[in-house]
Design a protein around this nucleic acid. Structure first.
Lengths: 325, 325
DNA sequence: AACCATATGTCAAGCGGTTAATATATGTGT
DNA sequence: ACACATATATTAACCGCTTGACATATGGTT
């Protein structure tokens, strides 16, 4: 690969001059610029970003840690994170933690060693201590981690309320909520709270299944739903904690001969494309995925630029009614 | 951030010595190693990978260019690419081209400037010339680009054959194939060939819709399917070029009052998780996504290490029969 | 006493850039 | 004639780390 020295030699100037053209500083004649750019093109030259980053102490790379890029929610998140990062001249280093503690830790170290300018965390199984040790601009996304780290998420509480209210309004007499891990995942807890506050206020019988599945073993949800309906055959409404799980519920309902929405009504959570692909169309609580991604990137870049940012960034959810309610 | 110099000072040795411990070269006493590692821990030191990469002329970064990470197929691909890259101590720089020519070109330049060790291309809208200009280890994935660049893909021809055969065996009398862009996408063409050779050999009436949709505008498929059934009401079998499109077909069938699989049988292509989430369960031609990713990574690393690699890497597909046939 | 493996040190150059300091030459307005 | 903006060059230091060359010291073999 051609270096700045090759360019300088070809033009017949010093590397300093070429560097000045590259960075557009000082006095530069049009003629000189033209000659330099021409030589760069001829040599197919690209400045070595490694060397630049080393000197500038800025890599223009953002680390993105998520549990699983193949999960549709994180796929859509990643798509928009990439979109907004690119717009701001940042690159994305992709890290899939698979919710594996040691992999998450290794990735955290790796990102630091790679001199990323900041990290967006959509996964965390580690203690807060590990994050403060990293000492890098940080934003958590769809996760609430500690008192000090800014986070971006949808309004899960409101989501729980909306889902419960809808099911009640549609005439459900006994509602199940399939929740995430309530201890580990603070946002799952607030969603649960929204749901509970509502069903209790309205005096609607309800049952909560806390799936302790640490991860994305979707095939196991069939069993969970089966048991749920076995123990509570009178359930006529289900609020699932994600659209993917809601899809599993629909599948299981069909297998058990329960018609949706006649016998059982189902509300999902996320608002991913999947909800549009399946039949019947899934009623869901839509998270503003694009805005979550946008805000996360913006908050991170603000931190990188030394600005103070707001800790709590909760974006509105929206009920999207389709055919399962 | 602590540097190697800080570590050296704390231990009371020279940076050369610390570097030697870091890289495990020359004679090193256990005692020295212990002291150095201890100081590193105390200072929370991580070697600066930028500096190392610059010196070594090796970044251990692989660029991954795909059209859209939120498309389930590429999401699953990316998940496994990341998995195998990580296993081999490589990091992934994620690039979403959105099938946008200029973004793809910019990313290509950016990756080169970033000194990635190689590129996996799952997207290409550019001419071969642009790629040869890059002069970097390269593998195309699910794409066939030129005579010289190694590619990894599923056996699309066989896929076309299997799908057609299945639909015929199930008694379909008129089969539609919704294909991709046959000029742009050589693999879509071979899949089409497999389909055509089979229906022609078996003398089955057929119709092909070539969707010129350059991208992933799925909502538009509803219209396409509607028109298809309007023009050919007697179609009783559909082979879609992806599972996502198959899902749209199912949705449209339902809207038009056509029962699947009774009135119309549907076969998808890809074998992504989506096929399991939807009801009825989608019959599809499964691409070995994990193996495609694994082979791509391996082929790229082999090239990085200066090995000669095979140009053509075609992996077997498998018919997965569910409820839509 | 000579030799060698072991263990550690110093020095300096190099990876590919950026930048500050300083020098020099030309044209231009006053 | 002087000041000043414009345009370019040279030199050297620096970013953080690696490496080769070379020096030195210790302990064990032969």
């Amino acid at each position: 690969m051609a270096t700045i020295k090759d360019v300088a030699e070809r033009v017949g100037v010093s590397v300093t001059t070429v560097s000045r053209v590259l960075n557009n500083r000082g006095y530069l004649s049009e003629n000189l610029k033209r000659r330099v750019y021409e030589a760069m093109r001829e040599l197919n030259y690209q400045p070595n970003e490694l060397a630049r980053s080393l000197f500038r102490k800025k890599s223009n790379i953002i680390g993105l840690i998520i549990p699983d890029i193949s999960h549709p929610f994180f796929g859509e998140i990643a798509r928009y994170v990439e979109y907004y990062a690119y717009k701001n001249k940042y690159k994305i280093l992709l890290c899939n933690s698979q919710l594996n503690r040691s992999k998450e830790q290794e990735y955290l170290n790796m990102l630091k060693a790679s001199q990323v300018d900041g990290i967006i965390m959509g996964s965390h199984t580690l203690d807060t201590k590990e994050f403060t040790k990293i000492d890098l601009p940080l934003v958590t996304l769809d996760r609430q981690l500690s008192e000090s780290i800014p986070y971006v998420s949808a309004d899960h509480y409101k989501g729980g309320v909306l889902a419960a209210k809808l099911l009640i309004r549609k005439g459900c007499r006994k509602i199940a909520h399939i929740s995430g891990n309530l201890k580990l995942h603070l946002l799952a807890k607030t969603r649960y709270d929204g749901f509970m506050d509502t069903v209790i206020r309205e005096k609607i019988p309800h049952v909560v299944v806390e799936t302790d599945l640490n991860g994305f073993k979707y095939d196991q949800y069939g069993k969970i739903v089966e048991n749920l309906f076995r123990d509570h055959p009178d359930i006529d409404g289900v609020f699932a904690s994600s659209d993917v799980i809601a899809a599993q519920v629909l599948k299981e309902c069909r297998r058990l001969g329960k018609e949706v929405p006649k016998d059982v009504k189902v509300v999902g959570f996320d608002g991913i494309k999947l909800g549009e692909y399946i039949t019947p169309g899934l009623t869901t609580i839509r998270q503003p995925i694009k805005e979550i991604a946008k805000t996360s990137v913006q908050l991170l870049i603000d931190q990188i630029n030394g600005k103070e940012v707001q800790r709590e960034n909760i974006l509105p959810v929206k009920l999207v009614e389709k055919e399962t309610t």
